[in-house]
Amino acid sequence: MSFYFLRRLNLLVFTLFMLAMASFGLAYLFPGDYLTNLTGIHFESEQQRQLYATLYKESDGVFWQFIAYLDLLWQGEWGQSFSSNQPLYQEVTTYLPASIELSAYALFVSLVVGIPLGFLAGLRHNKLADYSILSMSFIGYSIPVFWLALILILILSLQMGWFPISGRISLLYYIPLDTGFILIDIIRSDVSYKWDAFNDALRHLFLPTLSISIVTSTIILRITRRSVIEVMGSEYIKAATARGLNRYQVILRHGIRNTIIPIMPQLALQFTTLLTNAMIVESIFSWPGIGNWLIQAIYQGDYPSIRSGMLAVSSLVVIFTVSIDIVHKIIDPQRLYRQRVKI
């Protein structure tokens, strides 16, 4: 068991190391001075450049340069942005929570919608309910996210005026930045208009969450449905029926756990798909998230931002994937107790 953890951790560390290496390589590959690409500073004098050259160990060869880069990364010295001249570490930590927040709510919504519908479809396999849920999910799966987002804005925001078009919260409300997650920040703040602001933030969240969770719900629905069909056709479900349990007892005691455990990592990994989808949706809804920020950086040729943004997002995805794997291992009895017992 501890060997497994070690292997996973090794994988994690090694992947992060490779990512850091790639981001370091980017500094050389981007046009312009490599030191400028790393620091984000357009040097005005040779003296200033010398200062940073010693910091990044320019004279010591690529290997020591990389070590120095890793050291600085670890200290949070990620350089600064070309366009805003702000430290990148600060920029990323402001924008990333907004994306994580959006994806997390979307994942929550997709799970709440997808799993029950998947169960319904799987339990009514080859019946009307199954077919109708499946065809609905097919439609949902085929709709392009950006198009759906635009249509939603067009109908629900512009024509009906029910939801705001863009942004995270109305300009009327000032919320001090604390965790970066807007709903949590509002609850933790001491402002008098707390619940109005909360309501407003929810209304802002609705459309982006809806447009990215539709696709993920359909994926989750399909994964769940397949697993339910597989489990309900298995020998032990038949055996449980033969023992005289009724259908609900069979499903509750033996069906649900066996359905969910094998697909849990697949479900959780949808988070990474969501994060990528969220990037598209962010730029449509002007959601101040990392995706929107990265796209702006790409437009402006802001190389330090591209480098660190890429590093931050991919590290997040890698860390998330590995932790899901470990959590699944802890929960799943079949994988946990590998060793056989002697009786």
């Binding site: 032990y236 055996a239 033996h254 756990r257 066996n258 455990i261 009895p333």
Partner: peptide
């Protein structure tokens, strides 16, 4: 009933 394939007739997660 005693089923033919004992391992597959038991719930693997309980």
């Amino acid at each position: 009933v005693i089923f033919q394939n004992p391992v597959s007739s038991l719930d693997p997660t309980a």
